[in-house]
Nucleic acid binder design. Structure first.
Length: 266
DNA sequence: ATGTCGGGTGTTACCCGA
């Protein structure tokens, strides 16, 4: 089974590109982030034509997560238990953020996660990011307590660079989100709960990234960040036989600012 | 000049988020 995650930065502007990549890489399951549309706007046809089922949640033009699968798509869950909701309490759907969707695909519990950006270290969104990650850690730890043999993939855009080598120049990131101590501690706590980065062993750094800002010629200058991860439960991690970051998909006109990250399971 | 993209709208000029 082949599983991947990709922050596509609008599925409407990139559906054909994503469908072509699914075919080229022979993927069974794809977790998408930043679909940037409501459910009724999601272009399902190109994926259904290829044999994929689609589960999506999107409340507005922001955020939005989905799972595409051709090996079953069962027990779809919007949001994980305990997930904080930005804008909750008095807000309407337009200011609620769609950031997590789960489904069981071919025996694997797959979560497509779009961790809050945080914006700046002093923005309320930063506190929300840390709370969101703390709640994820608690819930995900509980899944393993309930079933230590569970096959779980926490896949998505984590908006955290866990190591200094995961950015091209730490000097650029002083007083920035994505590399701060609390964010890195939050990421580490999920790892310590039993979920390991199953991609890094196959894609060692330095200089290996999954995201390059559209501005400042970051991609041609090879100035990126490794912020997209597949964290696997112990039972899932044991099945991983290969992984790759498809840098080719960041090239050319019409590319997302993120590259897809793919994992092969035995 | 963020050497840029997406989305949106009180739309053909700006706004927001990343």
């Amino acid at each position: 089974m082949r599983l991947a995650t990709w922050n596509v930065n609008s599925i409407r502007s990139r559906a054909d590109r994503v469908a072509a990549w699914l075919q080229r890489r022979d993927l069974d399951v794809l977790a998408l982030q930043e679909t940037k549309c409501r459910d009724d706007q999601f272009p399902e046809e190109p994926f259904r034509d290829l044999g994929y089922e689609v589960a999506h949640v999107g409340f507005s033009q922001w955020n939005g997560v989905a799972i595409l699968s051709r090996v079953g798509l069962d027990d779809v869950e919007v949001g994980f238990p305990g997930q904080p909701w930005w804008g909750a309490g008095g807000g309407d759907a337009a200011d609620t953020e769609a950031r997590a969707i789960g489904a069981t695909c071919g025996g694997v519990r797959v979560w497509s996660l779009y961790v809050p950006n945080g914006r700046t270290l002093t923005d309320p969104h930063y506190r929300y990011k840390l709370d969101w990650l703390g709640a994820l850690r608690e819930t995900a730890a509980g899944w393993l307590t309930a079933d230590p043999a569970a096959q779980i993939a926490l896949a998505g855009d984590w908006n955290i660079a866990p190591q200094d080598d995961d950015v091209w120049d730490m000097g650029v990131f002083t007083h920035s989100t994505h590399v701060s101590g609390p964010e890195r501690a939050a990421f580490r706590s999920v790892v310590e709960a039993g979920y390991s980065d199953v991609v890094r062993p196959f894609t060692p750094g330095p200089g290996v990234y999954t995201y390059w800002d559209y501005t400042k010629l970051r991609f041609p200058r090879r100035e990126g960040m490794r912020i997209d991860f597949v964290l696997g439960s112990p039972a899932l991690a044991r099945r991983v036989t290969a992984a790759l970051i498809d840098r080719e998909e960041r090239k050319g006109k019409g590319a997302s600012d993120h590259a897809p990250v793919a994992v092969a399971l035995s």
